[in-house]
Amino acid sequence: MYQTFRQDGSDRQIRVQGSGSVKVKPDTAVVQLGVVTEGADLTTVQDENAAVTSMVKNQLMAAGVEETDIQTSDYSVFPQYDYVDGKQVFRGYQVSHMLTVTVNDIEQTGAVIDAAVQSGANRVTNIEFTVSQSYYYYQKALQIALGQALATAQTIANTMNVRLEQKPVRVVEEKSPDVSPLQPYAKTQMLSESAVPIEPGMMEITARVDVWFPFYP
Rank of each mutant, 00 (worst) to 15 (best):
14 I>P: 00
6 R>G: 07
16 V>T: 12
14 I>E: 00
36 V>G: 04
31 V>L: 08
17 Q>V: 10
35 V>L: 04
30 V>L: 07
28 T>V: 15
7 Q>M: 13
28 T>H: 04
27 D>R: 06
7 Q>A: 13
5 F>M: 09
18 G>W: 01
21 S>G: 12
8 D>V: 10
25 K>W: 03
13 Q>W: 11
3 Q>T: 07
4 T>E: 10
26 P>S: 08
25 K>L: 05
29 A>L: 04
20 G>E: 03
28 T>D: 03
12 R>T: 14
30 V>M: 04
26 P>T: 05
30 V>E: 02
15 R>K: 12
29 A>M: 06
27 D>F: 06
6 R>Q: 14
11 D>V: 14
19 S>R: 09
5 F>P: 01
5 F>T: 13
17 Q>F: 12
22 V>K: 03
23 K>F: 00
9 G>R: 11
28 T>A: 04
25 K>A: 13
15 R>Y: 08
17 Q>C: 09
27 D>C: 10
8 D>T: 14
20 G>C: 08
17 Q>T: 09
22 V>W: 00
20 G>M: 03
33 L>V: 03
1 M>H: 11
22 V>E: 11
12 R>I: 11
10 S>P: 01
24 V>R: 09
6 R>A: 07
17 Q>A: 11
12 R>Q: 15
14 I>K: 00
4 T>R: 10
7 Q>C: 08
15 R>I: 04
14 I>D: 01
9 G>C: 07
11 D>Y: 13
28 T>C: 07
11 D>S: 13
